[in-house]
């Protein structure tokens, strides 16, 4: 395959019947991660393609079973719709030391039966150390999955730091996965997970301490204002409660199509706006290179120029 295909060529290939269409999609995903500029270019080039019908965020405490449960959802989807395609985006943190990462979520997501199935596309992403790194290329990657024909996209992010908030910005609904033995519900409240969840799942229901945890969680949620959100029990290990989980996602999202449309529009709006600002900042940054920066800072501190004058000059020089 030619090395430097441009966005339009790659998209053309995705729309074709060529053997390289999956490859082209994967390439395009790499480009989507490279810069905000490319992310937006890709989003705009795909504006007439259909987005996936369902975009579900899956987050929660480390080790609560997100990947295994994602694997179960894949299998459930495959059982219900053998002809349709499903995409998964698995986000893991980069090492703060080297910038590298080991991305191994997919091990748990694929049953042997599905492991070489062409109807399942899994992409692992690293956060590259950015807060909100989830959102930078994720929306465009979701759109690319849509163009490939994915009906459903699942986005797994690890629930530490602020990543669980970012996943809200790129999904239709967020499922919070919790498991017994990982601290009590007070901690869960503190972590802020309660605000962002649309569906709550107590996984590892095969364990004896799952029921009391479930009761405690239901209680905690019902004491708060919004009681309508579903709370479910699953066992990703033995495959229990998976159908119910899947049903509740469908039900939640298709209750109100207009709401869903509006939500997606607003999300894209935020993503594009943020991309514009980030590109602008990048350009300003290059004007204010190392040498220049020293000079400017010292001039301000010494009172040679005013702060606001400096800002104005910088913006003027940028055009």
């Amino acid at each position: 395959m030619k090395k430097n295909k441009c966005i339009a060529e790659l998209i053309e290939d995705i729309h074709s019947e060529s053997v390289s269409r999956i490859r082209s999609a994967a390439r395009l995903m790499t480009m989507a991660e490279e810069s905000s500029l490319k992310t937006v270019e890709i989003l705009s080039a795909l504006v007439n393609d259909s987005m996936p019908r369902i975009i579900l965020g899956i987050t929660g405490a480390p080790g609560s079973g997100k990947s295994l449960l994602t694997g179960r959802l894949i299998a459930e989807f495959r059982k219900r719709y053998p002809k349709r395609m499903i995409g998964v985006i698995a986000v893991d943190p980069s090492s703060p030391f080297s910038g590298g990462a080991i991305l191994g979520d997919r091990i748990r997501m694929m049953s042997e039966k599905d492991a070489d199935n062409e109807k399942v596309f899994i992409r692992s992403l690293a956060t590259h150390g950015q807060i909100g790194g989830v959102t930078k290329g994720t929306r465009a990657i979701t759109a690319i999955m849509g163009a490939l024909g994915c009906d459903v996209v699942l986005i797994e992010t690890v629930g530490v730091g602020q990543m669980e908030f970012a996943v809200r910005e790129v999904s239709d609904a967020v499922a919070i996965i919790l498991a017994p033995g990982q601290g009590d519900t007070i901690q869960f409240l503190k972590a802020g997970l309660m605000e962002i969840g649309d569906i709550f799942v107590v996984n590892k229901s095969d364990r004896p301490d799952a029921s009391p945890f479930f009761a405690q969680l239901t209680n905690t949620l019902h004491l708060a204002r919004n009681e309508k959100r579903p709370v479910l029990m699953t066992s990703a290990l033995i495959g229990k409660g998976i159908g119910e989980f899947y049903d509740s996602v469908e039900e939640l999202l298709f209750r109100d199509i207009l709401w869903l449309k509006a939500r997606r529009l607003k999300q894209t709006d935020v993503i594009v706006r943020r991309a514009i600002l980030s590109e602008a900042e990048k350009r300003l940054h290059s004007l204010l290179h190392e040498e220049k920066r020293k000079e400017v800072v010292s001039d301000i501190l010494k009172g040679k120029t005013s702060f606001s004058q400096t800002v104005e000059d910088l913006l003027k020089n940028c055009v």
């Binding site: 994967a26 995903m29 790499t30 980069s94 191994g104 492991a115 692992s124 690293a126």
Partner: peptide, 30 residues
């Protein structure tokens, strides 16, 4: 791990994969 520590992003697919699975993953993960 040594590749991660050298700044690479490493897709680790687990053990006992078939050639077909390896190639599928390599392509999807670009």
């Amino acid at each position: 791990h040594i590749f991660r520590d050298a700044g690479y992003e490493v897709i680790y697919p687990g053990l006992r994969k078939s050639p077909k699975q390896i190639v599928k993953m390599a392509i999807e993960e670009d």
